[in-house]
């Protein structure tokens, strides 16, 4: 082999966030030495005060963009980074703080701060991709250790990282976990939520909260109509279901807008139920009740 190649420079950046994504990286205890061996940790304030100037080979970005300064900073980081990866629900979808996107930020400021005019903040909490091109996005609140490690590994070996977009259901089934929705009637976002967490909640007999955001082709209309018409979920509970860590991810944002008020939720699910579930043609062109009404 030729001479030892230069170690790639790794930088980890924080924007509006709780630090949980950086902790996920620090939590890779068995692999930390290997990471430090393969990368030059050039910027990672949560781990070390030592800072090496850019440019960087790989930047991991945690947090959402919520202030004008952050817009400038993410643009500068993009300029300094060969590969930029958004990590976690905040950096990929705006995070829980994107709840502000659905309200009046001026009102919040007036309610919380004595001198709101000092607060310089943007109206919306947005993902990194709203301002700069992003090479890969690791979903999740927090992201999965397995996916973070796979991304580092893929970078080192020049292959595409594995960030599958399919539903959480496939993980439950792979592990032999009994479906909480079918066997216990618990409303579960698993069918519209992206894989990654390893089905943590269903394993403990809880419905999925959607921490990993929408799966690749989420059908929130069908699932929501089933929740209200078969799982006994009150229509007004639909909106909060979709408005959590990934509230501003487009499929969940559309869903929560569709069910924004109790009346809208009732109407939307009833219309969908009537169109897609209740009215199914029988061979004579008439209509029949759904098969599961037989009891």
């Amino acid at each position: 082999m030729a001479g030892r190649r230069r170690k790639p420079k790794l930088a980890v950046w924080k924007f509006a966030s709780c630090d949980g994504c950086q902790l996920t990286l620090l939590d890779c205890e068995d692999e930390l030495l290997a990471i430090a061996g393969e990368f030059e940790i050039a910027y990672f304030l949560e781990a070390s005060r030592a800072v090496v100037a850019g440019p960087y080979d790989l930047s991991l970005v945690e947090g959402s963009i919520t202030t004008p300064e952050e817009v400038e900073r993410i643009r500068e980081i993009r300029r300094q980074s060969r590969v930029l990866v958004a990590m976690g629900a905040c950096a990929t979808a705006g995070g829980i703080q994107a709840l502000r996107n659905f309200a009046d930020i001026g009102e919040f400021k007036r309610a919380v701060y004595a001198t709101p005019e000092y607060v310089r903040t943007l109206e919306h909490s947005l993902p990194a991709s709203a301002y700069v091109p992003v090479d890969f996005e690791l979903p999740g609140c927090p992201p999965s250790r397995v996916q973070v490690l796979d991304l580092l590994d893929a970078f080192l070996h020049g292959r595409r990282p594995r960030i599958p977009g399919h539903s959480l259901c496939i993980d439950c089934k792979r592990q032999g976990i009994v479906c909480v929705m079918v066997a216990e009637g618990i409303p579960c976002l698993g069918p519209v939520t992206r894989t990654g967490c390893g089905a943590l909640c269903p394993r403990y007999r809880r419905g999925c909260y959607g921490c990993f955001g929408p799966m690749e082709t989420p059908n929130t209309e069908s699932l929501s109509a089933w929740f209200t018409h078969r799982s006994g979920l009150a229509p007004e509970r639909l909106m909060p279901l979709y408005r959590s860590f990934n509230a501003a991810a487009s499929a969940f944002q559309e869903a929560s807008a569709r069910y924004a008020t109790p009346d809208q939720a009732r109407q939307a699910t009833e219309t969908f139920w009537a169109r897609a579930f209740a009215k199914r043609e029988n061979p004579d062109g008439g209509e029949q009740a759904p098969a599961d009404d037989q009891g």
Binding site: E38, L156, K173, N219
Partner: peptide, 28 residues
């Protein structure tokens, strides 16, 4: 309209056999 494309039907089907093959590398 109703299908969630979640894959549950194929996972529980006793004859669905499709598989994929992945190569997993390590950091070093």
């Amino acid at each position: 309209q109703r299908c969630l494309t979640c894959g549950n039907c194929t996972m529980v089907c006793p004859t669905c056999f499709c598989f994929t093959v992945e190569d997993r590398t390590d950091l070093t």
